[in-house]
C-alpha cells in the first residue's frame, strides 16, 4: 500500500492517534476549538502539545538510546536534578531561609547552561558505564535512577524552592507569536535532531551500532563513542525537559519532578515503532509521545483522576509490544521472506 517502509511503519501509530483525537472530537466539548486570548493560542489541541512537550523532548533522546540497544532509566532523576540546580542558581539562599534573590539576578545563560552541563556529565556517566565498562544499560542507568533523585534532594535540601525569574519563566510558560514556547522548543529540537541524524550519517551509525555491534566494529564505526554520545544527548534532553517543567511551575520539586516520565518516554518510543537495537523513527516517537499525552488529556477531560492514566498507558504499551514481539514478527517475516524471494 505504502511503498516507503518508513511511512508504512508510521501508519498504525498515526491511526491510533487519530482514533483518540476523533473520540475526543465526539465526546469532549469544544475539543477542536482554538481560541486566541490576549494574543495567545488556547484550546485542547494546543494543550496537548504544550503539556506533552517534556515527554516529547525526552522521548527524542530515548529514541536514540533505544536504537543503540539500550535504555535510560535515569531520565526522571536527571529531570529532578536539572530543575533543582536551576532553582538553586536563581535563589541560592532559599534553602537556608534567605528569601532574597542575588543582585543582579542570575543570568539566563547560567540558569540554563549550568544545569544542562551537569546533565551532560550525568549522561556521560551512564554512557561510560554502558559503552566502556560494559554494564547492561538497565543496570547502569539504574544507579543514577536511584542516586539521582537523592542528589536533586541534596541540592534543594529536601525543600521545594519557589522562585520568580521572568526570562527563565518564559521557557516553560511563555508564548512566541501566540504559540506556547515549550511547543516551539520541542519543534526546534526535533528539527535539529532530524537534521543531525538524517542529514548526516549519525543516524545510520547509531542504527548500525545497535543492530550489529560486531559488524559495525568490522566496518570501522566507532560504536562505543556513538553509544556514549546517545546517553549524553538523552540526559541533555531530560535536562531541557526538567528546565521546562521547573520554569512552568516556578518551583523545583526534587521528589516528584519527572516521576514516571521515563516510563512515558519509553512507551512513546515503543509505540512509535523504534526497534530495540536497530531502526529508529523520530516521527514515530513524536506520534507516540502525542498519543501518551492525548490519553492523559482525554482522561482528564472525563473527570477520571489523572493517576489512573497509568492503567491505559500500560495497556497500550503491552498491546504494541505484543504486536512487535518475536512470536508474531517471525510469522510476518517468514511471509515477507517468501515474497521477497519469489
Amino acid at each position: 500500500m505504502f511503498k516507503n517502509e518508513n511511512v508504512r511503519k508510521l501508519l498504525w501509530p498515526a491511526v491510533a492517534l487519530l482514533v483518540i483525537l476523533l473520540f475526543n472530537v465526539f465526546f469532549t466539548e469544544n475539543f477542536l476549538n482554538i481560541e486566541v486570548k490576549d494574543g495567545h493560542l488556547f484550546g485542547s489541541l494546543i494543550d496537548i502539545l504544550n503539556r506533552g512537550a517534556p515527554v516529547l523532548i525526552i522521548s527524542i533522546g530515548m529514541t536514540l538510546v533505544y536504537a543503540t540497544g539500550g535504555i535510560d532509566l535515569s531520565v526522571g532523576s536527571v529531570i529532578a536534578i536539572s530543575g533543582a540546580v536551576a532553582a538553586q542558581l536563581i535563589r541560592p539562599g532559599y534553602i537556608h531561609g534567605i528569601l532574597e534573590y542575588p543582585d543582579p539576578p542570575t543570568s539566563l545563560f547560567v540558569v540554563i547552561g549550568v544545569p544542562l552541563l551537569i546533565c551532560a556529565i550525568a549522561g556521560a556517566w551512564n554512557g561510560v558505564l554502558v559503552a566502556f565498562v560494559g554494564i547492561q544499560p538497565i543496570i547502569a542507568t539504574l544507579i543514577l535512577m536511584v542516586a539521582g533523585r537523592g542528589i536533586a534532594q541534596l541540592v534543594t535540601e529536601g525543600q521545594i524552592p519557589v522562585f520568580i525569574h521572568e526570562p527563565f519563566q518564559f521557557l516553560g510558560g511563555g508564548f512566541l507569536m501566540g504559540v506556547p514556547f515549550p511547543v516551539i522548543v520541542s519543534i526546534l529540537l526535533i528539527a535539529a535532531v532530524y537534521f543531525l541524524t538524517r542529514r548526516t550519517s549519525l543516524g545510520l551509525f547509531i542504527e548500525s551500532s545497535g543492530g550489529n555491534p560486531i559488524a559495525s566494529r568490522y566496518m570501522g564505526i566507532k560504536s562505543r563513542l556513538i553509544v556514549l554520545s546517545t546517553y549524553v544527548f538523552c540526559a541533555l534532553c531530560a535536562g531541557l525537559a526538567g528546565l521546562i517543567i521547573c520554569s512552568d511551575i516556578k518551583a523545583a520539586d526534587a521528589n516528584n519532578a519527572g516521576l514516571f516520565l521515563e516510563l512515558d518516554a519509553i512507551a512513546a518510543v515503543i509505540i512509535g515503532g523504534t526497534m530495540w537495537g536497530g531502526r529508529f523513527t523520530l516521527a514515530g516517537s513524536v506520534i507516540g509521545a502525542l498519543i501518551i499525552q492525548s490519553i492523559t488529556t482525554t482522561i482528564l477531560a472525563f473527570g477520571i483522576p489523572p493517576e489512573v492514566t497509568l492503567v491505559f498507558k500500560a495497556l497500550v504499551i503491552i498491546i504494541v509490544s505484543l504486536i512487535q514481539s518475536e512470536g508474531i514478527q517471525d510469522a510476518i517475516n517468514t511471509w515477507k521472506t517468501k515474497r521477497a524471494q519469489a
Partner: peptide, 13 residues
C-alpha cells in the same frame, strides 16, 4: 549473520 549484515537496515544502507 553475526558479523556481517545489519539485518534491520536496507540493502542500500
Amino acid at each position: 549473520r553475526r558479523e556481517g549484515i545489519i539485518a534491520d537496515l536496507s540493502v542500500r544502507e
